[in-house]
Simulated assay, not measured.
Amino acid sequence: MPIDAAKALAAAPRAGEISWGHKDVQLYHLGIGAGIPATDPDELRYTLESRLHVLPSFATVAGGGKPGATSGLSMPGVDVDLARVLHGGQSLLVHRPIPAAGTAVATSRIAAVHDKGKAAVLVLRTEVADGEGPLWTNDAQIFVRGEGGWGGDRGPSTRGEPPAGEPSRTVERPVREDQALLYRLSGDFNPLHADPEFAELAGFERPILHGLCTYGITLKAVTDTLLGGDVTRVRSYATRFAGVVHPGETLRIRMWHTPHSTRVAVSVVERDDAPVLTDTTVEHT
């Protein structure tokens, strides 16, 4: 069996040093659409080093995105075909505000292996800490088609009931034609997001936007719209990737806000609100 759940779960964690500076943070923010309008004080906190605040989703690319979601595929007990792999979901727990520059140790392991019958789901957990203690914990849910059926634990259902009633706020965010080309400079150089020929071979009519770019765009929209732009209020952020976005399309972001959490649904305006992010929640103060 290509996935040996017991071996994967028992494997020793992998640890490595990562570092980042203000240029990495600024590039990430530009990659998720910050800086428009360029002189807006609310945007300058994402783009100007003298007043830089770090959006927590930067954690997904800190250190050049290593370890990334697919690093779990090289763990002991895991031997799968990359063509069968999908990034199914992402969750982030923020322990304290992320500094604009830092060095930390990232420790990764397979935290769970779920048997979904026709597929397996690997949960790659990365815990990051610096000299002052824990910074953040990332969980990437890796969906591997055709690798289930060994009788293992199915794991929790990731699909919840959609939010009830009308959203508290709805905003639209245009995705620039060059958004994926800019975002990939933060570390994810998968040609699926840049090379039309590769995208066609993968079954897409043209390159698609990184799911984690949509993830960042969405958190910025929630932070700016409902949290007064205060990135330190974000405590956790989880989503399930439900569809693709093409550069040049427009995201419709619906938010159902309560004092300590916001439910979110993201869709593509030009394709009859085709879902992109579902089961999405931002916990905040």
Rank of each mutant, 00 (worst) to 15 (best):
H210F: 04
T262C: 08
A11F: 03
D272V: 08
V113N: 02
P56L: 10
H87Q: 12
P56Q: 05
C213F: 06
F143G: 14
G146M: 06
V266A: 12
L48K: 09
F204Q: 06
G203H: 06
T239I: 12
S267F: 01
R176A: 15
A59Q: 04
T218G: 14
P191H: 11
L55Y: 02
G35C: 09
A38W: 07
G165S: 02
G68F: 06
L86H: 03
G187Q: 11
L82Q: 14
G77A: 14
V78I: 15
D4V: 10
V244S: 15
I217L: 12
T218K: 01
P207F: 09
S57V: 06
W256F: 11
L82E: 07
T278A: 12
A238I: 03
P191I: 05
G31E: 10
E177L: 15
D153M: 05
L201Y: 05
P99L: 11
A265R: 02
G160R: 13
A101N: 08
G149A: 13
E283L: 08
H114I: 01
D79I: 03
G77R: 08
G64R: 04
S57L: 04
A194F: 09
Q141G: 08
G88L: 03
G88W: 00
A59V: 01
H22M: 12
F204N: 10
V276C: 09
L93K: 04
A199N: 08
T39I: 07
Y46C: 14
L86T: 10
K23L: 06
C213N: 12
T285Q: 09
G187H: 09
T137G: 09
G216Y: 00
A199I: 05
N138W: 09
D195V: 05
H87K: 13
G203D: 09
E249T: 01
G211S: 09
F143Y: 15
L201W: 03
T170N: 11
L9E: 08
V61A: 13
L86Q: 04
R235M: 05
G102L: 06
H210V: 01
I32K: 03
L251A: 14
G68I: 11
R206F: 04
V276G: 08
V121W: 12
S19E: 13
F189M: 13
S50G: 12
L93Y: 00
G102R: 08
Q26T: 15
L93C: 06
V80M: 10
R169Y: 08
T137C: 13
A119V: 03
R263G: 11
A106M: 03
E166W: 00
G160I: 03
S108K: 07
D195R: 00
T170I: 15
A140L: 07
P76T: 08
Y46S: 15
A221Q: 05
H210A: 07
V78P: 01
R14E: 10
G64E: 07
T250K: 10
